[in-house]
């Protein structure tokens, strides 16, 4: 993971597979100072919604990102997979934005 820094997401990016045990992550830019907006879709949201949000936020903060929209469609992914998919989406967004 990259060292903390302030970085902006300028392009959309997706990661993950639409299948059980995985999570589909869609990342898109947001207006300046609009903050980090996370939407979680999961059949287990009432049980694990807070945990998923914390995992996602942990990765985002590690990259020093400030303003973005992120939707997470979870199909029962474990924490390591959620973090990996968010990392992938961020890296793709940053790479595609170069």
């Amino acid at each position: 993971m990259a060292a903390p820094r302030t970085v902006r997401i300028l392009r959309e990016a997706k990661a993950g597979l639409d299948e059980r045990g995985d999570v589909l992550v869609c990342l898109s830019p947001a207006a300046e100072n609009s903050g980090i907006q996370i939407a979680i879709e999961s059949t287990l949201k009432s049980l694990f919604g807070d945990q998923i949000r914390a995992s996602v936020l942990g990765v985002i903060e590690g990259y020093g990102l400030k303003d973005l929209k992120l939707t997470v469609r979870d199909q029962g992914a474990l924490d390591y997979a959620i973090r990996a998919r968010v990392q992938t989406a961020i890296e793709r967004a940053l790479k595609e934005g170069e």
């Binding site: 474990l78 390591y80 997979a81 973090r83 998919r85 990392q87 992938t88």
Partner: peptide, 15 residues
């Protein structure tokens, strides 16, 4: 390939 690298790396660290 990029996605698999992150997944495998996190799996080794976490599982």
């Amino acid at each position: 390939k990029d996605a698999a690298r992150f997944l495998v790396t996190n799996a080794i660290k976490s599982l």
